[in-house]
């Protein structure tokens, strides 16, 4: 039987452009199959190329793109920031 998990995603700065219907700061809730990785959410669900993302955090902890998501996870996706 398929198990579905719900996660909350927040896109930061320029990445908001991939979900223009969201208000600034509004999270996106997604229902996903158990075992879904961060990379799959990025590329297949959100259409964000993995190479434009440098920083992902799940529940406030840095995770890499192969991280497997769990029900209730809060995911932040962040582009590189380099200005001074």
């Amino acid at each position: 039987m398929r198990t579905v998990i719900e996660i909350e995603i927040r896109l930061y700065a320029t990445l908001r452009g991939y979900r223009p219907e969201l208000k600034v700061g509004e999270p996106l809730f997604l229902n996903l199959d158990e075992g879904t990785t961060v990379k799959r959410v990025l590329e297949e669900v959100l259409g964000i190329p993995a190479k434009v993302v440098k920083t992902v955090f799940v529940n406030g902890i840095y995770r890499d793109l192969d991280h497997v998501l769990a029900d209730g996870d809060r995911v932040g996706i962040f582009p590189p920031v380099g200005g001074g």
Partner: peptide, 25 residues
């Protein structure tokens, strides 16, 4: 490295598109 990994990093980031407005610095 925790932020960007140990691989190659881009030269610049979102500031190219969004600029650096007055109050952020």
């Amino acid at each position: 490295y925790a932020l960007y990994g140990r691989g190659e990093v881009p030269e610049r980031g979102i500031e190219v598109e969004l600029g650096c407005p007055t109050t952020t610095p």
